[in-house]
Design a protein around this nucleic acid. Sequence first.
DNA 1: GCAGAACCGTAACGTACGGTACGGCATGTG
DNA 2: CACATGCCGTACCGTACGTTACGGTTCTGC
Lengths: 214, 214
Amino acid sequence: MLQAGVDIENNEALTERQQAVLDAALRLLVEEGDNLTMTAVARRASCSKETLYKWFGDRDGLLTATVQWQASKVRVAPVDRDTLDLGSLTASLERFASDWLKVISSDTSVALNRVAVGHAGSGKDDLGAVVLQNGRFALARRLKPVLEAGRQAGLLDFEDAETAFRTFFGLVGRDVQIRLLLGDRVELTGATIGGDAARATQQFLALFGANNRP
Amino acid sequence: MLQAGVDIENNEALTERQQAVLDAALRLLVEEGDNLTMTAVARRASCSKETLYKWFGDRDGLLTATVQWQASKVRVAPVDRDTLDLGSLTASLERFASDWLKVISSDTSVALNRVAVGHAGSGKDDLGAVVLQNGRFALARRLKPVLEAGRQAGLLDFEDAETAFRTFFGLVGRDVQIRLLLGDRVELTGATIGGDAARATQQFLALFGANNRP
DNA sequence: GCAGAACCGTAACGTACGGTACGGCATGTG
DNA sequence: CACATGCCGTACCGTACGTTACGGTTCTGC
């Protein structure tokens, strides 16, 4: 219920100690997955279970706080759009693709997505919505202005920014995320990520570049 | 451990009653998710828990048997490749895309993928591998011959069939599967599926069609 | 320096659920 | 008909874990 607990709306109201506890919970979540126990978190964080319950109210409260804490840590710098030619647009898209691939292939992302997917079935909490909000929808919010700017500059040609974004999303991610979530060992070194990002960007430009339309 | 149980390698060795039990377990899995209980399965299937343990050995054994039972039910007819022009190739690709979208948006697929993802963290069983084998890899095995035939006929142009397939996979699925797994309500009527399949096919042909290369 | 709060460590409680045992019934077999 | 087998229904056991309670210790304000 979390009648008394941290204000999960704005994660600014987290003291240092609470952040450390959530970091410990996050590390444990990456290691153990959803079958972590409250005693394990308490032991790892060197705090008492009473404190955990006082701060986060509930096991689900602790989990959501952990997920939101991790989400609050990935604040990216927005791209500058003053210079906008084909080169800078390509670089921006490749950057987005590379960052996204790095994120979804990271251990923490895989672990968080796993627990969120597992909890999505029985609607006890909204972990899925949180992960979705800070994952796929955050990416859309940051990428759409770039796409719109590209269209304004006559570099891109598309009807709907949402559909264009979803195509880009598919070209970048392909089968990587589902394979990682299902436990498949996908080789993703830095070089392959760079190559995949460049390939996805070229394919996207081939589909939505303004010069490719007769 | 499943020392004594059904032969999960070939699901032919399943009696009628066992299939009915697995169907009940499957329905319950779709409804309840991973937090289904053995007593609930026994009650739903009108069998005793003793029988469940004798047949499937374990809770994980029951789950894997259920997943494999569902996997064995989706055997698709292979496409005929005698006539191979651009029209039939397009139709085949659209058919694959539409079928795949229908599968991943179905309730059972979402439920099965959820439990498999949830279990992928702690390697107690290989649900993830089973789902992956009967999902994404089965699709690749069925689609790659079509792609190769298209290349042989001079309709497609690609270096590696695997990369071409993964691009097709991304163009079709985009963000649908992860959004569904995370509990997002994605509108997927028959019309939208058809439209998405056609769009993905056109995009794939635009990228890998032989006539588009100078 | 002291009262009170915050918090740590641990013990205790309650329950849900995986796994097992057992009595009854139905069916097949000599 | 006696007997064995297979299975249903249910009661039972053990344990893991969420949740609470409590004594002891450190921190904070006056």
